[in-house]
Computed example of a mutant assay.
Amino acid sequence: MNSHYNTKQRKILIDCFENMDKKHFRASDVLEYLEKENSNIGKSTVYRQLENMVSEGILNKYIIDINTPACFEYEGKSRHEDMLFHLKCEKCGKLIHLHCHEIDDFQKHLYTNHHFKLNPKRTVFYGICEECEKKNK
C-alpha cells in the first residue's frame, strides 16, 4: 500500500473531487475539470493518484462492464457504512445510489438459502432510469 503524502497535486485532486458537480466521475471528468482550472497535473499522474486513493479508501472504484471506463466516487470526510447499492441506466449510462432497506430481505435470503454474501459497494442493478423511461413514452 502506498504511503499517504500531502503533495500539492494530491490537494488539487481532492479539491477537484469536492468541487465537481458529479457524485460519480471518470478519470476523463477529472482531466477535463483540471484543464478548465488550468492545472498542470499530467494524465499519468491523475491515473496513478486515482488508483492510490482507491487503495487508501479515499475513492471507491466501480467497474460496470468492459465497455465502460471505470467510475469513481469520492468518499470525502464521511464514508458509507450503510448498505449502498447502485442502479445503472442502460440507456444514458447514469449511475444512481440506491439506499433501500427493502433489499435487506433479499440479502438475508441469499445468505441463508444460497450461502452467498453480497458486497453492496460492488453490486450494480441494470435497467432504465425514470428520465429515459419518460423519453420512451
Rank of each mutant, 00 (worst) to 15 (best):
S55Q: 14
K137G: 08
L34C: 05
F85V: 02
L84S: 02
I58Y: 02
G57M: 03
L98D: 15
C129K: 11
I96K: 07
D21M: 08
G42A: 11
M1T: 08
H4L: 10
C89M: 02
Y126V: 09
D65N: 15
D105S: 14
S39K: 00
H97L: 09
G42K: 12
E81K: 13
S39P: 01
P120Q: 02
V30S: 00
I12M: 07
L31C: 05
F125G: 11
L98W: 12
F25E: 00
N60F: 09
N40Y: 07
N136P: 00
Y47S: 05
F125L: 03
Y111H: 11
N67A: 07
I58E: 04
T112P: 07
C71A: 04
E102C: 13
K23R: 13
S55A: 12
F17R: 05
C71D: 04
L98P: 10
G76W: 01
H24A: 06
H115Y: 14
N6M: 11
C132L: 10
F106H: 12
R10W: 00
F72L: 02
H109Q: 09
I103H: 09
D65K: 04
K23M: 08
K23L: 10
G42Q: 13
P120F: 06
D105Y: 13
D105P: 02
T7M: 05
M20W: 00
G93R: 09
N60R: 14
L87V: 07
H114L: 14
E130Y: 12
P69M: 05
N2H: 10
Y5C: 02
F116E: 03
Q49T: 09
E81Y: 10
H99C: 02
H97D: 15
I58F: 03
K88R: 14
F85N: 07
H114N: 13
N38T: 04
L98E: 15
D21C: 08
S3E: 09
S39T: 00
C92W: 13
G57E: 09
E131N: 15
N113D: 10
K36T: 09
F17N: 03
Y111I: 08
E37Q: 11
